[in-house]
Structures are given as structure tokens and as C-alpha cells.
Design a protein around this nucleic acid. Structure first.
Lengths: 235, 235
DNA sequence: CTAATAGTGTCTATCAGACATTATACT
DNA sequence: AGTATAATGTCTGATAGACACTATTAG
């Protein structure tokens, strides 16, 4: 019980980012090689300490997004994922980390940021399979982020954030298949996505090998009614 | 950009609790009257600073649950809700608050805790209607907690946490009606809840005015397959 | 018997999943 | 014509919502 002399403990706060994209039909996360101790040389999620005592958490997340990944956050979906504050999770002392989830369309290799010795995309499957080890408790955070993304695909228009400005329905379908890890019947998918009010709106056509595909762009709805339900066996 | 002399800013961390229960068929939240500045005399969510630099966040949440609400957290559903860290949200300085959501079955008036000058249940409708004002950004946190509870009722067995050890299907239905703010057809509700694998299991009978009701207790499943979908017009 | 509450049955419009066919381009 | 990809139609079993009846107790 605090007495009159007691003052609250002070802790350090970091912002960590789970940045997901699609590359070659696989779900990838952006990882950086740590340039300083602790865990120097190991892979970790991009992130870092608050700049100063007055920086907003969301602002700090956008700043790290730009610094470590070279991504302009303005057009990016960015959402709070959770807090990770188990004592001992960071050898430097008591560090509470606020995790954010960011979604980006397919991108080339990132320009290595100023802080990070090296930043690169890694398939989340490789991390889940234990092929890539992460510093701190970042594997836990990454798994939470991936699961959140999978769940959000059902109820929100998040999938369009994985695509470019415009996209075909097939491309949108490949997003769902990659993130959920399942195969979807194209005919039923066409019917369902077009039945969701305000999800996607037509925007011209695209030349391709074969019959030209209709192009769409994201509609006005953030929430999907009805939702696109994830099959039972999804990853 | 941090130079070699730079050290991360230190912030204070609080844990705040959204504790929900059902009283007289209405969704209520536990609020305390603040005994100290700032916001002395106003209503707020129960919560407080970390005890020390080594206290786990979840442990701190359980501690506050016991201290300020007199509730033993062992049997209680407790879940992280989010982080609230906007600069200026607390006049004492930079305070980052980790919010937790707790669900309790119907309880009598709480014994006022040691920290809180007074703790009492308030219908969340009164807060939403502006009849009760909360300190800090606690109204935002409360709203997030209520919305989370509503969403979780669809996909998890959370509703049973609002009931006692055993309950009738009618009682369970009243939980859904109160939290969602809608009326549900009892016949369809019976069919649906009994069709969900592992949601509820029979456990004797209950004497009542009229035909005795079958009693149930919570089943083993945490997640509901299929989910109980919330009607469109739910609050 | 009557009142009160618990529990079950049925009908129908809609929807999800399986599956085959037609359409439009390029070579 | 042949190939490749896009788009649409149909059938069927399951489900959600509307609705009416039977069952079991107390007084």
C-alpha cells in the first residue's frame, strides 16, 4: 500500500511494429537485424523507445514505421495490438512495449533504415516453423499480430489494404488465401464479395492474358455486412 | 534521433479496470469516487499505479480488482483491453494506462476498498447518456470495454461468466439481451445455444414458479462454433 | 382449473458450398 | 483454332428467423 512518501515506479516504453505484407503469395513480416545490444545481430520486430515524454504512442508508431521500414504511414492501416509488459522481457530493465499492427501492399526490399543494420521481409511461416528466431518476446507479438490480421479479414475491409489502389477480384482472393492459408472457390468468392455492401466498387478494367478482369477499388465500408466467414480448417 | 548520451524517457504506468456485471437486467460497471487529486470527488474506473518496477501487468490488474472492488480474481475472466497513452490525459505527467476488462456475475454493493472513497455499480447506459461523468479519459475506456464485451459474447462462452455457477437457459438469454440491448426469441435461442458444441452442459433442475427449469453450467469450450451472431440493430 | 414458466416442433426464405458453363481476350 | 483467364448460373443441404403448441409445476 503506497504511503505518503511513495511515488509510482517509472518504466521505459517501446513501440513495436508487426508489419505484414504479401510477397509471392505468402504472408511476410518485416524484421530487422538488431545493430546494438541486447540481442545484437538477431532478428527482431522494428520498433524503439518513445522519443520523449510527450510523444503520442500512435505518432511514435508512425515514426518507427518511417525510420525503420521507410514506409510513409499516411496511407497505411495502423492498429493497436496490445501491451507486453512481463518483467524480465528486456534485459535493460522494466520495459513495457506497445505493439501496433500495420498492413502494406506488396513492396520491394525495404531500404535499410537508420537504426536497423538490416531490414528484410521474412515469411511468417518460417518464423512459426522455428526457422527464424526473434529477440525478446517478439515471436509472441508476431503471432498475435498474424492472428489479429486473420480475424480482421473476416469482419473488415482490411484485405483491400494488402492490395494496391485498384485490384481484381482474383487478387483480392489471393490475399484471403495467403493470410488464411486455405483455398477458396473463385465462383463463391465472387458472389460473396460483390454481395457485401460497400466493400468494393468497380473502377475500370485491366488488360491481362485472357479475358480482361474488372478492376475494383476499396469501397466506403470499413466493416463487412455480412462478414466473410473463415473456414473451420484455416491455419 | 538518439545520440550516445540519449536515454529513453520514463513514464508512469497505471492499470485501469472495466468491471462489468448484470444488476436488475441492466449492464453495470463498477466505478469509484476518487479520494485524492486529481479529479477528487469525481467518478472513475478502479485502478492505480504499478506497485513496483517488477510487478506484472496482469498481476497488478488482479491486485486492483481485489483492493478496489473486493473481488477475488481467481474465478474471474480478465482480459487486456488496450493501452491509453495520449499525452496530457493525466495532469500528473506522462501516464500510460493499461486497461483490463473483467466480468463478474451479479453482486451486492461492493465493500468500499481501501483506496477508493466509495465504490458503486452504475448502469453503463447512464454513463453513455451523459448522466454520469468520468475522470480522465475513462469514458472512452469504458465504452471500449462495453463494445469488447458485446463482440466477445458472439464468439466466446463469455456470457456464462455473467451467470453464477449454474444457470437456466432463460437466465443466459437475459444476459445476451441485457448486454446487446435487444430482444431474442426464446425458442430460437434454446435451439442455438444447445447446438453449440461444449457451450453449456446440463446440471440438474431448478425449482421455480411454473415448470422446473433445467440447470446448466459452463462447458469446456471457450470459443463458440458456430458463433451466436448479434442482430444488426444491436445497441 | 388457472396461471405461470419451461421446453419442443414446423414452416419458409435465405445462404453457403459444390460444381459446369459461357465470355473475352491473346497467340 | 487453341489457350488462358474472367465471369456467371444452378442445384442442394443447412440454417436463421417467425410462429404455435405441449409440458410441468404451484396455488
Amino acid at each position: 500500500m503506497p504511503d505518503e512518501q511513495w511515488s509510482p515506479p517509472l518504466v521505459m516504453v517501446t513501440v513495436d511494429l508487426v508489419i505484414l505484407t504479401l510477397r509471392a503469395g505468402e504472408l511476410n513480416a518485416l524484421l530487422v537485424e538488431r545493430g546494438v545490444e541486447p540481442y545484437q545481430g538477431e532478428m527482431a520486430l522494428p520498433g524503439g523507445f518513445l522519443n520523449n515524454g510527450e510523444e503520442d504512442l500512435q505518432v511514435a508508431a508512425h515514426r518507427e514505421l518511417a525510420e525503420e521500414a521507410g514506409l510513409d504511414g499516411a496511407s497505411l492501416h495502423l492498429e493497436q495490438l496490445g501491451v507486453y509488459g512481463t518483467p524480465g522481457r528486456d534485459p535493460r530493465g522494466r520495459v513495457v512495449s506497445v505493439a501496433y499492427l500495420a498492413i502494406a501492399p506488396g513492396l520491394p526490399e525495404p531500404a535499410a533504415g537508420t537504426d536497423a543494420a538490416g531490414a528484410r521481409w521474412q515469411p511468417v511461416g518460417a518464423v512459426a516453423a522455428g526457422k527464424v528466431r526473434l529477440a525478446f518476446d517478439h515471436e509472441l507479438i508476431l503471432n498475435d499480430g498474424v492472428e489479429r490480421a486473420r480475424a480482421k479479414l473476416e469482419h473488415t475491409a482490411l484485405a483491400t489494404a494488402f492490395c494496391g489502389e485498384t485490384f481484381t477480384i482474383s487478387e483480392l482472393q489471393r490475399v484471403y488465401e495467403a493470410v488464411w492459408g486455405v483455398e477458396i472457390d473463385p465462383r463463391n468468392f465472387y458472389r460473396k464479395v460483390q454481395g457485401v455492401e460497400g466493400f468494393i466498387v468497380p473502377d475500370g478494367h485491366k488488360a491481362t492474358r485472357g479475358r480482361p478482369a474488372r478492376l475494383f477499388r476499396a469501397g466506403r465500408s470499413a466493416a463487412l455486412h455480412p462478414p466473410l466467414v473463415r473456414p473451420e480448417g484455416a491455419t
